[in-house]
């Protein structure tokens, strides 16, 4: 017997990706807005286990950087600073509520640790990547919840009641499916003022992405509701005096659970990508608030793209995130057949 199923492995990798993003204040060594004008476009810090005299140390360290002009930096191997774990640093709000200044790791001034280098303003890309992930993933998750909420609601109503509600809802769903939604997002976003504050832009992003996508889950759920309302046990439950809402809750929706979960797992990466796309094009949440999309948007400049490869790391990280989600979705898919038989 295998020690871990594929499904639990995928779940674990998803957790491993999400936990640092969830607790980004703790995992990030610096504040997202903290600028180091002298250190713009610094490559990722090297982590050393030896000092200048080639003696081995168990505690890793980073060396202080010196700016040698024209965007060139060199390490001063004589001035090494050990990396400390669980140290006090700049204050932050955990989950936006709890005040804390504990960081998982960091180094003492004047050295700096930039795991993923810095951007134009000398901001730590790693910290921004974690905070930006919060925004991007939250957009994906909330928009998925919104899509599924509407989709399940309208899909169940259409499938369960049939007749004209079904016809009306499904025609509207087809309209939504036929829309080129990316361009629709552009249109909606372009229609609204460009300099929205971060919270408003976020809400707008979530609601536009979420509402546009309701049609597909609605169609799937409708199909299930349509077949399950014909089942004998639904008829029987009705003959015993079950109300419509009871029948939907207890007999129809449980049939759709597997599909709803699979849809959620499929939609989250899709919507994260939608956020990244929109922010990349400057239609999402704006600077200085980081999101994966607007972090990538600096890559639109050719010079940045060819010279500073570390700025593409947030894009590269999307690949394992999406793969885990999509593989999990395909793992979840055939589960229902066993129960059905």
């Amino acid at each position: 017997m295998r020690l871990l199923s594929k499904k639990s492995l995928l779940l674990m990798s998803l957790v491993a990706i999400h936990v640092p993003i969830l607790f980004s204040g703790l995992f990030a060594p610096y504040d997202v807005a903290e600028q180091n004008r002298d250190f713009s476009f610094v490559p990722p810090s090297r982590i050393h286990f030896t000092d200048a005299h080639r003696t081995l140390h168990l505690r890793p360290s980073v060396c202080s950087l010196e700016n040698s002009g024209f965007g060139q930096y060199h390490e001063n191997r004589d001035r090494c600073f050990p990396i400390h774990f669980l140290i006090m640093g700049s204050p932050y709000l955990l989950f936006g509520v709890f005040k804390s200044n504990l960081h998982l790791f960091g180094v003492e001034a004047p050295a700096k640790i930039f795991l993923m280098g810095t951007d134009l303003y000398g901001r730590d890309v790693f910290s921004r990547f974690l905070y930006g992930g919060q925004l991007s993933l939250l957009t994906g998750i909330l928009a998925t919840a919104l899509s599924l909420g509407f989709g399940v609601l309208f899909g169940t109503l259409a499938g369960y009641y049939g007749g004209w509600p079904d016809a009306v809802i499904m025609r509207i769903a087809e309209l939504f499916l036929a829309l080129p939604w990316l361009y629709l997002l552009f249109a909606v976003r372009a229609f609204l003022p460009l300099n929205l504050n971060a919270a408003a832009a976020f809400c707008l992003l979530v609601s536009v992405i979420g509402i546009v996508g309701w049609a597909r889950p609605a169609r799937l759920v409708r199909g299930i509701a349509l077949s399950s309302r014909e089942r004998h046990y639904v008829l029987a439950a009705r003959l015993f005096g079950g109300s419509d809402s009871y029948l939907i809750r207890r007999h129809v929706l449980p049939d759709a659970y597997a599909v709803i979960i699979t849809q959620a797992v499929l939609l989250i990466p899709q919507y994260v990508l939608a956020e990244v796309t929109l922010s990349f094009l400057g239609l999402g949440v704006g600077e200085p608030t980081p999101s994966w999309g607007n972090m990538l948007s600096t890559l639109q400049q050719y010079q940045v793209l060819v010279s500073y490869w570390w700025l593409a790391i947030p894009g590269a990280v999307l690949v394992p995130v999406f793969c885990s989600y999509l593989l999990l979705a395909s793992e979840l898919q055939p589960r229902r057949t066993a129960i059905d038989a």
Binding site: H232, A236, L239
Partner: peptide, 23 residues
Amino acid sequence: LRRLRGSETSIVYQDSETLNPMM
């Protein structure tokens, strides 16, 4: 009618699939 069904009048149906297989 709904309050009547199952409490005043009740039906034993002809086929055996009147039970939800997942409950």
